[in-house]
Design a protein around this nucleic acid. Structure first.
Length: 623
DNA sequence: GCCGTTTTCGGCCCGACTGTTTTCAGTCG
């Protein structure tokens, strides 16, 4: 994960943050908004779903929000020549070791610069150790503006950094959800806990989770007791910090868990605020400010002339209801308006309710203003699963499943599905002749049809076929007669360049009966980055040929990633949400794929396996 | 330095905590 290739988005975001920090050092006051601008640009680059360099080459650099003429021209120069004179000028005189120290908790740009300069710690490789030595020799506390406590905190921060350096992995969503449910269950052992929710990235169902945020509703007077209970959580490894109404601990695996206790009256604002994302909150506050409201985790304050939103506004706390469109002088009314749920908060601001999954600060607020937030697909809409692996032995190229076709069918029935598709891996090509493979496939079809002849659920016979490096399929075409559909996916040779990989995939998608592109980026969360593809080409091909992009629900995959899902949706592509189950229990993973779809703004209309059996048959026959 | 169904100029999110402080600076989420 620590790849910092030249011109990667990660590297560029880091560069922009360095420039931002440099402006802090040059003068935080006069550069205040420039600093924010660079930070915003860095965020935007970091969250981009494709390489900024490619965006630049497509001539769309200035379409990236946060990149304007100033930063943009510097970046162009950087792409062309490998450096930017402007960035160099700003960064001049700031040793690299300063930026290393800034990664230590509790050390920001100013302290980092000060410490590096005071003690001459210009070696980037050793600066953490060097500063630790200086601190242990009791030399920091005598600096002006530092004291004993500062020195202790810095030493502690350095030690944490050293330990945590290699452990900053984020965990896949499903594991974090399990952990949060366990903690919530533990908290609810106390009857004074009226309600507990997992917030933050967990509630937004982000594919990987850094730390677990949990909020609790309780009376104010009970909060201390609840915090104390939390600090006795059996999975606790250490206490990071604890106050009256909040605390954070490290659980096994160095997972940070934050707890906050709040009363019911203002819980809506709390939920919104700690659900985030940070970008969503900033945009929501900017939007509120334009309407004359200041937003915080406690509620809303009026700050100036108020033009209320169109939809009738009900003021809480006895404030007068303001008729539509009338401008009202509120003066210095500092009263805070509280919201017990999020619906009333968004509605107060004249916004449609925004589901947590899409609160990412893209353009959800613009959509909510005009009531255009689509109704997201739900788990209950799913009518079948097309990616399941059975224990039928067709000498497959990869892992077999653990359960029989009949058992998969039973599970599908228990999930109230209308249909199920079987997609074992293709027979291993290197061990078998084409004729042998055809025979195996024929026998398999006969076996399935015989075994399930009296089944009261519809089934489809499919196969998951490897895309060979050449783009050919690892299945002879004569065997296609024995399947209803094919899933094609990448299982090897992941490191081709973009153009080669794109051609490879397009060729694979051109074969008859190919209806699904399985786990399209082939990423493995925390282990392997996704492949490079020209997504525009893939999307338009898939759309024209009625090929569905898979959203693979398996916890380590969650692939296609949500940002690409949204782009594909805008390109008119259809999707299918599958589990890639290798045993019946895995079929319960469907909820995670649905979360990815929701984060990609999908409604059920764009998800093929929400359609009834008849439509599925039509789709399978479309070419 | 960026940005605009209230602006091409005049704005730019909000609050907590902590420490070294006589009113604030730095860091964090």
């Amino acid at each position: 994960m620590s790849t910092e290739e030249k011109n990667s988005n990660k590297e560029i975001a880091e560069l922009l943050r360095k420039v931002s920090a440099a402006y802090v050092l040059k003068g935080e006051k006069e550069n205040r908004f420039r600093i924010i601008a660079y930070e915003k640009a860095a965020d935007a680059v970091e969250h981009l779903s494709r390489e900024l360099r490619d965006v630049w080459q497509d001539g769309k650099l200035y379409k990236v929000p946060g990149i304007g003429p100033g930063i943009g021209s510097s970046l162009e120069e950087y792409f062309k020549t490998g450096e930017s004179r402007h960035f160099n000028e700003i960064l001049k005189g700031i040793p690299e070791s300063v930026f290393t120290l800034m990664k230590v908790p509790g050390i920001g740009p100013k302290r980092a610069f000060r410490l590096v300069m005071e003690f001459g710690l210009t070696e980037k490789e050793t600066v953490v150790d060097d500063l630790l030595n200086v601190g242990r020799a009791n030399k920091i506390s005598s600096l002006e503006g530092f004291g004993q406590k500062s020195q202790d905190d810095i030493i502690e921060g350095l030690e944490v950094y050293q330990k945590r350096d290699r452990l900053v992995e984020r965990m896949p969503l499903p594991y974090a959800l399990d952990l949060s449910e366990e903690v919530i269950k533990y908290l609810k052992e106390m009857t004074k806990v009226k309600r507990a929710d997992a917030l933050g990235s967990l509630r937004r169902r982000v594919a990987t989770i850094g730390d677990v945020d949990i909020a609790v509703v309780a009376d104010d007077r009970d909060s201390k007791e609840i915090v104390a209970h939390f600090l006795k959580y059996p999975g606790l490894r250490s206490v990071e910090g604890a106050g009256d109404a909040k605390a954070s601990i490290l659980a096994a695996g160095n997972i940070r868990i934050d707890l906050r206790v709040q009363n019911q009256k203002s819980y809506g604002s709390m939920l919104e605020y700690f659900t985030g994302s940070k970008e969503h909150n900033i945009r929501l506050r900017e939007y509120a400010l334009k309407k004359g409201y200041s937003l915080s985790e406690y509620g809303i304050k009026k700050v100036k002339n108020v033009i209320p939103a169109q939809a009738g506004i009900q003021k809480k706390n006895g404030s007068p209801t303001v008729p539509d469109g009338r401008q009202v002088r509120v003066g210095d009314d500092k009263q805070i308006i509280e919201f017990k749920d999020e619906e009333s908060l968004y509605s107060f601001l004249g916004l449609q309710y925004i589901p947590p999954e899409i609160r990412e600060g893209t353009n959800e607020i613009d959509f909510a203003k005009v009531n255009q937030i689509p109704h997201p697909v739900e788990l209950e809409n799913i009518k079948g699963d097309f990616h399941t692996h059975s224990s039928y032995d067709l000498q497959p190229s990869h892992d077999m499943g653990l359960n029989s076709y009949s058992e998969l069918v039973e599970k599908a029935k228990s999930l109230k599905y209308e249909y199920i598709g079987f997609s074992d891996h293709n027979p291993k090509k290197s061990n078998l002749s084409d004729e042998e493979i055809v025979t195996i496939m024929k026998k398999r079809k006969e076996y399935i049809d015989k075994t399930l002849s009296s089944s009261d659920i519809h089934y489809f016979i499919g196969l998951e076929v490897d895309i060979l490096p050449s783009g050919e399929l690892a299945l002879p075409e004569k065997a296609f007669d024995y399947v209803d559909y094919l899933i094609v996916s990448l299982h090897s040779s992941f490191t081709m360049n973009n153009a080669e990989m794109t051609n490879r995939v397009l060729k694979a998608l051109s074969y008859p009966k190919v209806k699904i592109f399985g786990h399209p980026t082939a990423r493995l969360l925390g282990k392997r980055e996704g492949v490079e593809l020209d997504w525009d080409k893939i999307f338009s091909f898939a759309k024209d040929r009625h090929i569905a992009l898979e959203i693979n629900s398996a916890p380590p995959r969650l692939d296609l990633p949500d940002t690409l899902v949204r782009e594909a949706k805008e390109a008119g592509v259809k999707f299918i949400i599958n589990t890639d189950a290798h045993k019946v229990d895995h079929m319960d993973f469907m909820q995670y794929g649905v979360s990815v779809a929701r984060r990609g703004w999908l409604t059920k209309n764009e998800v093929i396996n929400t359609k009834p059996f008849k439509e599925i048959k039509n789709w399978l026959n479309k070419t």
